[in-house]
Simulated scan of single mutants.
Amino acid sequence: MSQELHHAAMQRVLIVEDEVDIADLIMFNLQRAGYEVLKAHDGIAGTEIAIRERPDLMVLDLMLPGRDGYSVFREVRRDARTAHIPVIMLTARAQTEDRIQGLEAGADDYLTKPFSPKELVLRVNAILKRADAPPGAVEYEFGPFRFDKNSVKFYLENEPLDLTSTEFKLLLFLCERSGKPQDRNDLHRTVWGYSDEVHSRTLDTHMKRLRQKLGAHGAIIETVRGVGYQVASLVS
C-alpha cells in the first residue's frame, strides 16, 4: 500500500444517504480509494454517528427521513466537536437555488444526482488533502486578519471568527497574494482541487459568505471582472 493510500485509510468518511444502493456505491468507491466508511440511512442516525464518531468528512444527502439534511448540517455545525468537519452535500435537486442554499449554509461542496462516483472520490480527496496539508508557517497575519494554519482558526481583530475550512483556505490564498487578481479557474483548482465552470457559482457563493462574515472588512475582497477575485493590498 502506498504512503498516500495508507494515510487515506486512516481517514473516515460518513455517508448519510437513505437510498441504500447509492450509499453502497459511494462506500465501495471510497473504500477502494482507501478510506474507512461509516454509513447512516436517516438524518437522526446520521447526526448521532457524526457527533459520536467525528469523521474526517461527511457526504450528506438532503432528502432524508427522520431529519432532513439541512437540519443534520445545522446540528453538526452547532456542536463544537463537529463544527469543522467538511461536508459535501448530495441531492437529487438540480436547481441552482438548491445548490446555492446548500453552499450558503456553509457546505464545502455540492453534487447533484446522478453523479460520477469517481468525481465524488476526487472531491473527497481534494477536501481532505487541503485539510491535511503541511501548514508551513504556523500563523499568517494580514492587516486585521490572523490565520492559525495548524488549527484552521481565523481571527478578526484578535477575535475568533468562525470560517469553514473552504472559506479559510480561500481567504488565506487571496491574502497571501494580495493586490494580484486570481483567476477563477486557479481558485477552483487550488481550493477545491478541480476546475468546473458548470459549478462556478460555488466560488461566488463562498465569496458572498466571506464578505458577509467579515462585515465592514468584507470590502477588501474585490471582484475583478472577467478574471476572478483579489484581496486589496494594504495601504502603508
Rank of each mutant, 00 (worst) to 15 (best):
H6V: 12
T47Q: 07
G136E: 10
E167D: 01
V87C: 08
M207N: 07
G106H: 03
F154D: 04
N29A: 13
E48M: 09
G69E: 00
H188I: 05
G136K: 02
P86F: 00
V13C: 06
K149T: 15
L62Q: 01
N29M: 06
Y110P: 00
Q31C: 12
R225V: 11
F147D: 06
T96W: 01
D42H: 15
S233L: 11
I22K: 01
F145A: 04
E53Q: 13
P65R: 12
V152P: 06
T112M: 01
K149D: 08
V76F: 07
V138Q: 07
P144N: 08
E53K: 08
S236M: 15
D56Q: 07
L187Y: 02
R74I: 08
D108G: 05
S165Q: 09
H188G: 10
H6T: 15
F145C: 07
G215S: 04
R189A: 08
I49C: 03
K129V: 11
V13Y: 05
D42R: 13
R67H: 06
H217S: 13
A23Y: 10
S178I: 11
H41G: 13
L5F: 14
M1V: 11
R177P: 07
G106S: 07
D109I: 13
F28A: 12
N125Q: 10
M63Q: 10
N125T: 07
P117K: 08
V235F: 10
V59H: 01
M27L: 13
Q31E: 14
K39I: 15
A92R: 00
T112Y: 08
H199T: 15
C175R: 06
A40P: 01
L203K: 10
L214C: 06
D204M: 10
G193I: 01
H188W: 05
D61E: 01
R74P: 05
L210S: 12
Q95I: 12
V72G: 00
S236R: 15
S200C: 07
Y229F: 12
A50R: 06
K113V: 03
L170N: 02
L122E: 09
E97Q: 12
E176Q: 15
G102K: 08
V224M: 02
K149C: 15
R184K: 14
T82I: 04
E48P: 05
V124R: 02
N125I: 09
G43R: 00
D148I: 03
L120A: 04
T223Q: 14
F142R: 03
P181V: 00
Y194P: 02
